[in-house]
Design a protein around this nucleic acid. Structure first.
Lengths: 191, 191
DNA sequence: ACTCAAAATGACAAAAATGTCACTTTGGAT
DNA sequence: ATCCAAAGTGACATTTTTGTCATTTTGAGT
């Protein structure tokens, strides 16, 4: 027995995501978000005490969604299949890395935040472990170069998806080339 | 016949750089900058009318410095040498790409800004052309894969240096591995 | 049709950042 | 030594963002 809400959680988190990516953590304001949702600013305070809290909730939502998909990487036994799955996944969550970086800027003031922050750290750890597992498998199968640090491999893959496609190269060509660079580099074989 | 300044242009631009990288465009304030320089906030208004103007000046300063070095790439005839020079250069100006992205957030309000913005665009174009020239040489010498779009190659090289070295891998090892990934990828040869 | 709890609002006070200006300080030039 | 232009300051008015709260609106349940 309650009134219908004017915006769903999905609406809210989507708007939050766009604003965060366009304006950064410090440029994100409740005013902007309320405007986007066509709601009064004070309505938002019914759900989140402040900016930090909202952004933390958003991060968890985003990470949960991403992790649900990332965990599916273990459905594939073969490294090659995992690799393909991972690239597709990253392509559809291009900015997860960027968002995580923004999340690191959120100040932790009180106990409540402390807790949320810990939870989020846990999710990051999960993600990292999942990716390190992937790299481990690749090395074990002899597919990935053993002497390159795991963290660099993981970081490089994540970072790849942030290269801006300024020249508007068609999607499939872009992904194809990207995959090739990641696998075999940009130099020709005879070097 | 004037009083000695309490801070040099270098001081100011260095502080600006750090603040921009740590807080982003919207999080950068005159208050923070003044505090950093141990000067009153109003002193800064003697030199820059507002935040946008200051940041534009900073961008030009930074780009000028970078371009001076980037242009030296043409001192090397051989692509291989150009490649090595470029990686070293990028390593010591790791965040130039990030700064350029931040610069794109600066709103252009008036004629004066319009002009500065044009000048900055010119510098970006220079940078881009210089890098495209480099890629062109690489392709001509048969070193770079001809079917990968120039913009992707350029973007990749720039982006690579933003991979955070979270595990604190020693600098030389990090650069070495990075170079290898860029050249030949992360997969072993027998794939 | 009435109730009432959740949803939404607008108005308010406080905090933070901006921009301006009259005034003070400083140190090289005379 | 003293002049004075540039450097720096503190106080003020304005704007933007934040956070709170009393009040109003809404619509599902009865």
């Amino acid at each position: 027995m309650a009134r219908e809400r004017k915006f769903s959680d999905e609406d809210l988190f989507l708007a939050t995501k766009e604003l965060l990516l366009n304006h950064g953590y410090e440029g994100f304001t409740f005013g902007l978000l309320a405007e986007r949702l066509k709601v009064s600013r004070s309505a938002l305070y019914k759900y989140f005490g402040n900016k930090e809290e909202l952004i933390m909730e958003f991060m968890m939502y985003e990470m949960d969604q991403f992790m649900d998909k990332l965990r599916k990487i273990d459905d594939y036994d073969d490294f090659e299949d995992q690799f393909n799955y991972l690239l597709e996944l990253m392509m559809s969550h291009r900015n997860i890395h960027q968002l995580i970086e923004i999340g690191r800027h959120v100040p932790v003031n009180n106990k409540k935040m402390e807790e949320k922050n810990k939870k989020l750290d846990g999710l990051h750890l999960n993600m990292y472990q999942s990716l390190v597992g992937f790299v481990g498998l690749g090395k074990k199968e002899g597919k990935l170069k053993p002497h390159i640090p795991d963290t660099l491999i993981v970081g490089y893959i994540l970072q790849s998806f942030l290269v801006p496609n300024l020249a508007q190269i068609p999607h499939s060509e872009w992904v194809q080339s990207m995959k090739e660079i990641i696998r075999d580099g940009m130099f020709t074989d005879d070097n």
